[in-house]
Structure formats: structure tokens, C-alpha cells
Write a protein that binds this DNA or RNA. Structure first.
Length: 205
DNA sequence: AGCACGATTAACT
DNA sequence: GTTAATCGTGCTC
């Protein structure tokens, strides 16, 4: 498979639910010292608007959430539980706060590098969580606000093989234990139902 | 200036 | 199933 051009800004300049669903099957790519590390996105969550009480933007514009109000296609990175970084991609139109959290990927390139950063965990545990992806790809606050659509981006998303709806499960978002309804249960999480079957015959795995 | 909590993970029992 | 780790952020005083 030839390397393809990264997804450009119009892909991200749409409502969070659309982008979250369509990112499934796309490839998250990290360039580091000339090496490619990548994986197919298999789980995402949508966060959208100040009315969404599960979204950090419920607090409005703050130093942390500022980037979510900016142009789409940039990285929104935040730190939680005193030790974990999370990668989101800013979506929707500039001025409207929305982002998609990348929760899980199926790693496929740069496996030796990923293994070295994942502390002897078995491969199935390398990138099956938002903080694990950031650890595996060496992503932290230095990526806050970085443009994933820039010509020289070292973190971006490539087109992949889209999953049909038959492979996709929709559910409430994870970890919003103290968030009031309806936001706690609103089905804004998208993931591949049967990873083994869903990823069958896909490239570069 | 102080406080409670978190879009999690790994290591326990 | 339970819990410690660990600190930035936003809110209250």
C-alpha cells in the first residue's frame, strides 16, 4: 500500500459525531526520527459543545480548552489522573468547541518502538486505551495545539479502509461517572464490535 | 492559597 | 472487584 496524503482539514471540519464514526478504519501516524509508528483507529468518542456536561468545554474557554475553540484538525491534548496524557482531534467549525477522543487503535507499524515504551505488556495491551496510545506514540503536552493537517506534521491521520456499520458498535462514553444525564449515557462512543473479524483482510496489520 | 476531582492504568486481593 | 499513583485544572475562599 502506497503512503497516502494525510486527511485534510475539511474532513475534520464537520460535527463530532460524523468525524468520530468515520475515523474508524483511518490510520493514526506518528513520525519520529524518520520512523513511522502507526495503527488503525478502532475506538473513538465525540465531545461537543458547552452544553455537553461530559466535555471539558462545559467550563467555557479556559487556557486548557482554548484549542477546542480553534480551527479543526489540531490536537487537543490533556493530562489527567496525575499521570496520563490523552489525544483528541479538534473538529467542527472554528469557534465551536468539539473534539474526538482517540481511545484505541490496532497497532501496525513501529512495533519495536511501541513495545519498548509499553513496559513488557503483551501486544494486546499496547494501544487499547487512550493513555496507552499516547505512551506508545510518545505524545504529550508538547503536541497541544499542533496542526495535524500541516505539510510537515509528525502526527496525522491517513485514509484507511472504512468499516461498514455492521462492524461498528455505539455505546455511552467511558469514564463519565460523575456526569449528569443525559450526557452520561448518550451514545457517543464508537468502536469495532469484533476486532478479529472486523480487521480481517485489512492492510498492514 | 487551598481544595476536590479526573474522558486512566496497572497491580493488587 | 478494588485501589493507589500523582498533578493540572477550575472553582471557592
Amino acid at each position: 500500500m502506497q503512503p497516502s496524503a494525510p486527511l485534510s482539514r475539511p474532513f475534520f471540519a464537520r460535527p463530532a459525531l460524523h468525524v468520530a464514526r468515520e475515523l474508524l478504519g483511518m490510520r493514526l501516524v506518528r513520525l519520529e526520527a524518520g520512523e513511522r509508528t502507526s495503527g488503525v483507529i478502532i475506538e473513538t468518542e465525540a465531545y461537543s459543545s458547552e452544553q455537553d456536561l461530559g466535555c471539558h468545554c462545559r467550563a467555557g474557554r479556559t487556557p486548557r480548552t482554548q484549542v477546542m475553540y480553534g480551527p479543526p484538525g489540531h490536537a487537543y491534548i490533556y493530562f489527567t489522573y496525575g499521570m496520563h496524557w490523552m489525544l483528541n482531534i479538534v473538529v467542527d467549525v472554528e469557534g465551536f468547541p468539539a473534539a474526538v477522543l482517540i481511545r484505541s487503535i490496532q497497532h501496525s507499524e513501529g512495533l519495536a518502538t511501541i513495545a519498548s515504551r509499553r513496559g513488557g505488556q503483551p501486544p494486546a495491551q499496547w494501544t487499547n486505551g487512550p493513555a496507552k496510545i499516547c505512551q506508545a506514540f510518545n505524545i504529550d503536552k508538547k503536541f497541544s495545539g499542533v496542526d495535524l493537517c500541516a505539510p510537515d506534521a509528525v502526527l496525522f491521520v491517513e485514509p484507511g479502509n472504512p468499516f461498514p456499520d455492521s462492524c461498528v458498535t455505539v455505546s455511552p462514553r467511558v469514564g463519565l461517572n460523575n456526569v449528569p444525564e443525559p450526557w452520561k449515557s448518550i451514545p457517543w462512543r464508537f468502536y469495532i464490535r469484533d476486532k478479529a473479524h472486523g480487521l480481517k483482510d485489512k492492510d498492514n496489520l
